[in-house]
């Protein structure tokens, strides 16, 4: 088991009170898995990935614990986490364009990162060259400045840097959102390639775009208002969703071939609840077409099929 997360609670401290952005998340991530994390903005998906690598104010660890490869992860301790960052947990930032230092050449930039971890640059040279080859870049770019590369090339350089020390867990937060479709496809496929080659053990891929997840993820976790809504294998989440939120979300996505004239789609009315003082019980009940009295109580996370968890009172009834 690569990552084990139990009842993780991370809140944001604000003047008006605690914003309960991540409220009790339990997740097991086996080796070699790409898990996709999807949900609306403000559902806590970025909080989850940020909490694992850099938990800084106003974020506050309220409860729960995390283990990585059997070692407890001191995510609440800024300094103790330093031993894990980059070596064991690494992140690909969303804006690769701005992730590199514009005033030094890429080669020197990589050297400074590696040496800051107490590792000699010559030791990783071979790995660096072979990975540049895998992503389709030439060695020459080590002598270039970031401004001389295109957006897609920068993204690939950043991906190579992030995985150079073979981290156990890779966090990818919205890395494909700002890219064009053709670059998006290339980057997403590289993530799979990195996993297959064993450069990273497991990946948490955060995005709001479920169709990208369908292409690359092994499992998908749908979050709503800081909590788990549904977790399951990619095929079941897309083709047989059980949580009413997942159902509405998947059915509201247009695809090539669907037109307004013939098959109009509909969104989900309403807005997610404010997490400053979230409602009791199911947090989706305000917008849910199936809501009934029991929804004012916290829904249990039910395993309706092996590996397919749904947090809904009507989880069993709705799978028709």
């Amino acid at each position: 088991m690569s990552l084990k997360m139990v009842e993780l609670k991370v809140h944001y401290k604000t003047i008006r009170g605690m914003v309960q952005a991540l409220d009790g998340m339990t997740l097991d991530l086996p080796d070699g898995e790409i898990i996709g994390l999807a949900g609306e903005s403000g559902c806590g998906k970025s909080t989850l990935s940020n909490a694992l690598i850099l938990l800084k104010p106003p974020m506050e660890l309220v409860g729960g614990h995390v283990e990585l490869d059997g070692t407890p992860l001191p995510i609440g301790e800024f300094l103790q986490m330093r031993a894990f960052r980059y070596k064991h947990i690494s992140i690909i930032p969303q804006y690769a364009m701005n992730a590199m230092n514009p005033t030094v050449k890429i080669g020197r930039f990589i050297r400074s990162i590696i040496e800051s971890r107490g590792i000699s640059f010559s030791k990783v040279m071979n790995a660096l060259y072979s990975r540049f080859e895998i992503v389709g870049l030439s060695k020459k770019i080590l002598d270039l400045y970031p401004i001389e590369l295109s957006g897609g090339m920068k993204q690939r350089v950043v991906m190579v840097i992030a995985t150079l020390l073979n981290p156990s867990l890779l966090l990818a937060d919205e890395i494909t959102s700002a890219l064009d479709v053709s670059t998006q496809k290339a980057v997403a496929k590289l993530i799979v390639e990195f996993r297959n080659q064993g450069f990273v053990k497991s990946v948490i891929f955060v995005t709001h775009d479920v169709s990208v997840l369908y292409q690359i993820a092994d499992r998908i976790l749908i979050m709503y208002a800081g909590k788990l809504a549904e977790l399951g294998p990619t095929e079941s989440i897309i083709n047989q969703p059980c949580h009413p939120y997942t159902k509405l979300l998947v059915s509201s996505m247009p695809e090539v071939g669907v037109t307004y004239e013939k098959t109009p789609l509909y969104g989900i009315p309403g807005q997610p609840p404010l997490l400053l003082n979230p409602p009791k019980g199911c947090r989706f009940k305000e917008r849910c077409p199936l809501a009934y009295e029991q929804c004012s109580e916290e829904p249990p996370i039910e395993e309706i099929q092996p590996g397919h968890q749904v947090a809904c009172w009507k989880a069993r009834e709705t799978d028709d």
């Binding site: 609306e40 509405l248 979300l249 509201s252 996505m253 109009p264 789609l265 969104g267 989900i268």
Partner: peptide, 14 residues
């Protein structure tokens, strides 16, 4: 916009 609301703005254009 979020996936759950974007389609309604599109429908409005239609």
């Amino acid at each position: 916009l979020d996936a759950s609301t974007r389609i309604d703005v599109l429908n409005l254009l239609g």
